[in-house]
Design a protein around this nucleic acid. Structure first.
Lengths: 199, 199
DNA sequence: CGGGGTAAGTTGACAGCGTCAGCTTAAAGG
DNA sequence: CCTTTAAGCTGACGCTGTCAACTTACCCCG
């Protein structure tokens, strides 16, 4: 093996971890299984990452930047729903399509040291939401207020929906009856945020 | 030991698990440490619970019912803030005071089989939020809409705030500058939900 | 052109985890 | 008093993340 081309092996390890996470959830991602899937030994990742956590952080950064792309792309669509609604729908559908990846980013485990890569991705994600808020305010779909903080509130709402839906708490005992779908909750929330309905 | 008084040992085990969780987080709660703290051996819990997960579920039910109490108690207070605001503050302050217990209930781990105890507690919690919504609607602090679904939206918002604050994502890169506190975000969100501001 | 130097990769080992099997023990009932 | 029953204990297993020591293959410099 060559001491100069460490990058491809590193990429293979991250890719293998991502595939295992998507297929079998967090508990399927062990260093041994990742090594086997990337055709290296169980402790080869330690040459590229200090830690299992650091490996997962590399995965999280990739997913997070993808999320921002999805929000913007969804907002540009042309369904009958409002632009704000489309952007939020993009957030949710991406989160629900890759639940394990989403929870890797915004789940329980606190991010000890974000690292520059992850910070950039997180900033871009928040920027995408902020753009959404500013356009919605211009369109009169959202009331006045500081866009930065309103974007955070919107994020909090979307994250709550995504996380509770993924973990199944939204369906649990009888909080949401079978007919109330996630998208209806989103519509209801956005309607409640709409300012001063002109009758 | 007596074969008829299994209850006290069971209670001691649950209490020990709760104390360990609060003190040292989830990874401090191992069956071995729980056993040691309850003065039994490492596998004694298996006489009372099928599983480690079942032990934790017993803990979750206790915490969840306590949460409903806190919401109602906080709503009855008499600060200068609105009743809705006080109730929401009660939810958040309880979640942040016992972050590990909160994440045990509403964190990443999906609840496989809730069990009747947990269902009752969850129903009561949602009822407390629904009462809050209905009173707020009567006071004109919240717009019209189905109380049940609006309570779910409110819960989603509160959970998003609590979970992101606990995990540290809210403070992360630069989503919320140092001065913006959690309570300000709550106030902003509730203000955005207030219908048709006069003036 | 050949021998270090360097870093990637491998294997062996360790402690800690959840969990199960088999044993011991103590209290209750006939 | 002796049998039954269930609580509790110890030993063991496979799994995990992680580290240390070793091997190997490539690059650079003399």
């Amino acid at each position: 093996m060559s001491p100069r081309d460490a990058a491809p092996t590193r990429a293979a390890i991250v890719a293998a971890a991502g595939a295992l996470l998507e297929a079998g959830g967090p508990e399927a991602v062990t260093l041994r299984s990742v090594g086997a899937a990337a055709d290296v030994s169980r402790s080869a990742p330690y040459r590229h990452f200090a830690d299992k956590a650091e490996l997962l952080r590399a995965l999280a950064a990739k997913t997070l930047s993808e999320l921002a792309v999805r929000i913007r792309r969804a907002a540009e669509g042309d369904s009958h729903r409002s632009r704000l609604h489309r952007g939020c729908g993009g957030y949710l559908s991406y989160a629900l399509a890759q639940p394990h990846h989403y929870l890797l980013i915004f789940g329980d485990a606190p991010i000890a040291e974000p690292g520059p890569e992850l910070e950039v991705a997180a900033d871009d994600g928040m920027l995408a939401l902020r753009e959404l808020v500013e356009r919605a305010q211009a369109d009169g779909e959202l009331g006045a207020g500081p866009p930065r903080e309103l974007a955070t509130v919107l994020w909090v709402l979307l994250h709550g929906l995504a996380q509770l839906q993924i973990t199944g708490h939204l369906h649990e005992p009888r909080t949401v009856d079978g007919n109330t779908r996630l998208d209806d909750l989103l519509a209801l929330a956005l309607a409640a945020l709409r300012p001063a309905q002109p009758q």
